[in-house]
Design a protein around this nucleic acid. Structure first.
Lengths: 114, 114
DNA sequence: GTTGCCAACATAGTTAACCTAGTTGGCTTG
DNA sequence: CAAGCCAACTAGGTTAACTATGTTGGCAAC
């Protein structure tokens, strides 16, 4: 399935999967074929398929569930004021990080003194 | 250098490099340390470093030149780049989630055995 | 001095092996 | 029948080995 066009195989497979998702050929909420199945249908090794799926995962197009499969995200793009939302999220993450670090600190102390 | 926080090493290294680029510690147009050097400074294998650099390459933060090195993109200041910001935030949330789950796990064990 | 070769180093891609861990379904045992 | 174990499948992470290819600097030969 992968052609020797100079474009690396793991990108070709990622492209193809992206296209199948975009076209609805694999609908939101539905699972991709398993890694082994993809490897067979694309005539590629397990390694390159895992790289391809990892790309889509990194892009947020799909989410993986260990033991079950890799599923197409159901999400819809909110598209209101994205920048404001980003600012709010940044603040929230910073706050959570600070609080979590405090928790971890006290937890490690409790373990050390027990 | 990579910590055992549950967050995979190749993401930790990618985060760190992203931060060094964002902060200007590695300026646009400058090369990243070589794969071998990164592997040594992070105490990781060549493979995970290659995965990390591959991520940044995929995100468009850096461009690789075979035989020379991997260079920080001159254009596209990632501070305004919503995609990069989203990626970073997603990464941060995932990291926080894992750490929190770890804390909750140890907390429930402590309660159960007390 | 210049040319050309060559070794060392660089990114990039592919494959394979091994490990962890979650899910599921069937079978065995009580 | 019900409980629990176990085998087979799943994703995910790590490492190593090999190949291809590009760059650079030094050295030898002419």
């Amino acid at each position: 399935m992968v052609k020797k066009t100079g474009r690396p195989g793991y990108l070709q497979i990622a492209d193809e999967l992206r296209e199948q998702i975009r076209s609805g050929s694999i609908a939101p909420g539905e699972p991709l074929p398993s890694t082994a199945q993809l490897a067979e249908t694309f005539g590629a090794s397990l390694s390159v398929v895992k790289m391809s799926v990892g790309l889509l995962r990194n892009e947020g197009l799909v989410v993986g569930q260990q033991g079950k499969g890799v599923f197409v995200r159901e999400d819809a793009p909110p598209a209101d004021d994205i920048r404001a939302e980003l600012t709010a999220l940044r603040a929230a993450v910073a706050d959570l990080t600070r609080r979590l670090e405090q928790l971890e600190e006290s937890a490690s102390q409790r373990i050390a003194t027990s």
